[in-house]
């Protein structure tokens, strides 16, 4: 017992070392939050392009310009997903950091947000696409036959239902994302993992900082899961019969 308290004091209290973890946690959360938003927005757009292309046979009945546009957009999306999913996120981050944003004052956190956001969007796109495809074709037909445009039918009828279907998979994706941000240290971002690392290098104690860091990640993902569970229940209200 005494040893544990001593280890905690050495790794956290002495020289205010806990601040490495607090600052790190702050960066981890900022990166996760904004990467999530970027991932969802971009992922949804990609999914909509891909589903529209598939559902309408490449807008078979529209004019030539739209047909060419959707074909190009669809090809770009497919290529994007292939490349992003087929390469490691650390490499993508390092390419962004060392090759693209080479300016000295580029912020590591911003690059991490862009990197993780782009990476996540490829996975989110496929998640959304599976959700959009799972909605019965009759829903689209009903919306269109009531005079709603394709975009309005998507917006009011298809996407809200698809969102409910994919919520568990989305939740899973973001638990992966929270943990994946632990490689942000590669591009000089001091995230939670890096914070723990710095403490280890000062105290030569590996157990304590690593266990604490692991515990914080576990806590974060648990809180997130509870939150999503609540959201799921409230979205499922209309499925209860009586």
């Amino acid at each position: 017992m005494e040893n544990i308290l001593k280890a905690l004091r050495l790794n956290l209290i002495k020289d205010n070392r806990y601040l490495y973890l607090v600052d790190g946690l702050k960066n981890t959360m900022i990166i996760t939050l904004f990467a999530t938003i970027l991932g969802i927005v971009l992922g949804l757009i990609i999914a909509l392009v891909r589903t529209t292309y598939d559902n309408t046979n490449g807008l078979k009945n529209s004019n030539a310009v739209l047909k060419v546009l959707i074909k190009i957009a669809n090809s770009i999306c497919q290529l994007y997903i292939t490349i992003i999913r087929g390469t490691p996120v650390v490499i993508q981050l390092m390419i962004l950091f060392f090759c693209i944003f080479t300016s000295r004052n580029a912020s590591g956190v911003l690059i991490a947000i862009i990197g993780f956001g782009l990476n996540s969007s490829a996975y989110v796109a496929e998640i959304f696409r599976s959700g959009l495809m799972s909605i019965d074709q009759g829903q689209m037909e009903a919306g269109r036959s009531l005079g709603l445009s394709y975009i309005d039918t998507m917006k009011y009828i298809i996407v809200p239902q698809a969102f409910k279907v994919v919520l568990p998979s989305l939740c899973n994706e973001f638990i992966v994302l929270i943990k994946e941000t632990s490689v942000a240290g590669y591009v000089a971002v001091q995230d939670l993992t890096k914070g723990g690392d710095i403490i280890r290098s000062r105290t030569y104690d590996a157990w304590t900082p690593l266990l604490i860091v692991a515990g914080v990640y576990l806590l974060l993902t648990c809180i997130f899961s509870v939150f999503v569970k609540k959201l799921e229940v409230s979205l499922r209200k209309n499925e209860r019969t009586n």
């Binding site: 009759g138 009903a142 809200p160 409910k164």
Partner: peptide, 8 residues
């Protein structure tokens, strides 16, 4: 199959 919107 009616095609009512189940979420509304």
């Amino acid at each position: 199959h009616f095609n009512l919107f189940p979420h509304l």
